[in-house]
Amino acid sequence: MTNNDRPAEASDDQGSRAIPAAPSTGTLVIHIWSEAGPGSGFRARLTYRKQDDGEPAMSYFATPADVVNAVREWLDIPSDPTHPR
């Protein structure tokens, strides 16, 4: 999934999530909600920006695991804790 794209109704296929690595200072907000329909209904929106950027960017996700992975990317934390940077 790319920035500013909403997930398909019940699709868990997120594709590529282009969330930039965390800046030295910045803001990342996670908003979660549930939608009726097929699948889990889980939805999340990540809103993020660098301290000196203009408008914040947004990405949307349909699974908690995708949210965790996106936050790890933004914070530049390896997904495998046994292999630190």
Results as ranks from 00 to 15, higher is better:
M1Q: 13
M1T: 15
T2C: 02
D5P: 06
R6K: 09
R6P: 04
P7A: 13
S11L: 03
S11F: 07
D12H: 06
D12N: 11
Q14F: 02
G15V: 01
G15Y: 00
G15C: 01
G15N: 06
R17H: 10
R17I: 15
A18P: 04
I19T: 14
P20K: 07
P23H: 10
S24V: 09
S24C: 05
T25V: 07
T27V: 15
L28I: 15
L28Y: 06
L28T: 10
L28K: 11
I30P: 00
H31M: 02
H31A: 05
I32D: 12
I32P: 10
W33F: 14
W33H: 15
W33S: 12
W33Y: 13
S34W: 05
E35L: 12
E35T: 12
A36C: 08
A36L: 15
G37H: 03
P38S: 12
P38D: 14
G39E: 12
S40V: 07
S40Q: 11
S40R: 12
F42M: 13
R43C: 03
A44K: 02
R45N: 06
T47E: 13
T47W: 00
Y48E: 01
Y48Q: 01
Y48W: 00
K50L: 03
K50Y: 00
Q51D: 10
Q51W: 08
D52P: 02
D52V: 01
D52S: 06
D52T: 06
G54R: 15
E55I: 12
P56A: 14
P56K: 14
A57L: 14
A57M: 13
A57G: 09
M58D: 14
M58A: 11
M58T: 13
S59A: 12
Y60D: 07
F61H: 15
F61D: 03
F61L: 15
A62G: 15
A62R: 05
T63H: 07
P64Q: 11
D66G: 08
V68T: 14
V68N: 11
N69W: 01
A70W: 05
V71W: 01
R72S: 04
R72C: 08
R72K: 13
R72Y: 11
E73S: 14
E73V: 04
E73F: 00
W74N: 06
W74Q: 02
L75P: 13
L75D: 08
D76Q: 12
D76G: 05
P78S: 09
P78G: 10
S79E: 13
D80C: 02
D80S: 02
D80M: 02
D80Y: 00
P81K: 11
T82H: 12
T82G: 05
H83M: 10
P84E: 05
P84R: 08
P84W: 09
R85M: 05
R85A: 07
R85L: 04
R85G: 06
